[in-house]
Computed example of a mutant assay.
Amino acid sequence: MKLLWWSLAAVLILAGLATVWLPIPTGVPLLALGMIVIVGTSRNAARMLRSRRRKTQPLNHAITWVEDRSPLQFARILKRTRPRKK
């Protein structure tokens, strides 16, 4: 099952990379969906994203912005990667 999700993520990311330069805004949402699928299926990816969010405030603000505007299922996955307060 994990192979299916990772394959879906790879397809989404490749499609996002292929369409990011087109005038139709489909590249960035496809890249974001691919990232959400990877983070949702891999604890290591979630840990790595949490660490990167802790070190990079602009990235943290951007992902928080996406959390606030995404459907509940996607927002729940992204909220797991919020930096923990010490």
Rank of each mutant, 00 (worst) to 15 (best):
M1G: 09
K2G: 12
K2H: 12
K2R: 13
L4D: 13
L4C: 08
L4V: 10
W5S: 14
L8K: 04
A9N: 08
A10L: 14
A10Q: 15
I13Y: 01
I13H: 04
L14M: 14
A15Q: 10
A15I: 04
G16A: 02
G16F: 07
A18M: 11
A18R: 09
A18W: 11
T19N: 05
W21K: 12
L22M: 12
P23N: 04
P23M: 06
P23C: 04
I24W: 08
I24K: 08
I24S: 03
P25T: 05
T26V: 11
T26S: 13
G27H: 09
P29W: 01
L31C: 04
L33D: 05
L33A: 06
G34Q: 00
G34L: 01
G34N: 02
G34C: 02
I36C: 10
I38Q: 05
I38R: 06
I38K: 03
V39Q: 09
G40W: 02
G40T: 04
T41P: 03
R43G: 14
R43Q: 09
N44K: 13
N44W: 15
R47M: 01
M48N: 09
M48H: 07
M48D: 14
M48A: 12
L49H: 03
L49C: 03
L49R: 00
R50N: 03
R50Y: 03
S51K: 05
R52P: 01
R53Q: 13
R53I: 03
R54D: 05
T56P: 01
T56D: 15
T56E: 13
Q57F: 04
P58Q: 06
N60E: 11
H61P: 02
H61D: 11
A62S: 14
A62Y: 12
I63Q: 02
T64P: 10
T64L: 15
W65I: 02
W65T: 06
W65L: 05
V66C: 00
E67P: 07
E67S: 02
D68Y: 13
R69T: 01
P71F: 12
L72D: 15
L72Y: 13
Q73H: 14
F74A: 15
F74S: 15
A75T: 02
R76S: 09
I77S: 08
I77F: 14
I77D: 13
T81P: 07
P83S: 06
P83A: 02
P83F: 07
R84K: 12
K85R: 15
K86D: 14
